[in-house]
Simulated scan of single mutants.
Amino acid sequence: MPLLTPEWSLPPGAQARFSTRAGGVSKPPYTSLNLGDHVGDDPRAVFENRNILKTQLPSEPLWLKQTHGVAVSTPISRSLFQKVGIEADAAVTNVPNEVLVVMTADCLPVLFSSSNGEVVGVAHAGWRGLCGGVLESTMQEILRLSTDLKPEDILVWLGPAIGPHAFEVGEDVVDAFCSDGLPIPPDAFVPIAGREGKYLANLYLLARQRLLALGLKDISGGTHCTYQEKEHFFSYRRDGLTGRFASFIWISA
Rank of each mutant, 00 (worst) to 15 (best):
V174E: 05
G197V: 12
G221Y: 08
F189L: 07
H38N: 13
R44G: 09
K83P: 00
G121Y: 12
L211R: 13
S77L: 03
P164M: 08
R210K: 15
G117P: 11
D42M: 00
D89C: 03
T226P: 00
L64F: 03
H124K: 10
Y236G: 04
W8Q: 06
R237I: 05
E141S: 10
N97G: 00
Q15K: 15
H68L: 07
I52C: 01
L3V: 10
S115T: 14
R78P: 00
E171P: 01
S59F: 03
P160R: 01
V84Y: 04
A246I: 06
F81E: 09
F112G: 06
S179H: 06
Q228V: 09
I86K: 00
P185S: 13
G163Q: 00
L108M: 15
H38L: 09
F81M: 04
L155A: 11
P11H: 08
M1N: 12
L182K: 12
P186F: 07
A90V: 04
R208K: 15
P96L: 01
L212C: 10
S73K: 01
S115R: 15
W63S: 06
P185Y: 13
A105D: 14
L3A: 03
L62M: 05
S77K: 13
S252N: 12
E141P: 01
F233P: 02
L4Q: 14
L206I: 00
M103C: 13
A45F: 06
H38S: 13
Q66M: 15
G126P: 10
R78Q: 09
L135G: 04
V156A: 10
I86V: 15
W63E: 08
V119S: 13
P43M: 07
K217D: 01
E7P: 02
H165C: 01
I76D: 14
A207R: 14
A123D: 02
I142Y: 03
S79F: 05
T147E: 09
G126N: 15
H224L: 00
F189C: 02
F167H: 15
T226R: 02
T31C: 08
S19E: 02
G13K: 03
D180R: 12
Q82Y: 05
D153R: 02
F18I: 03
L241N: 13
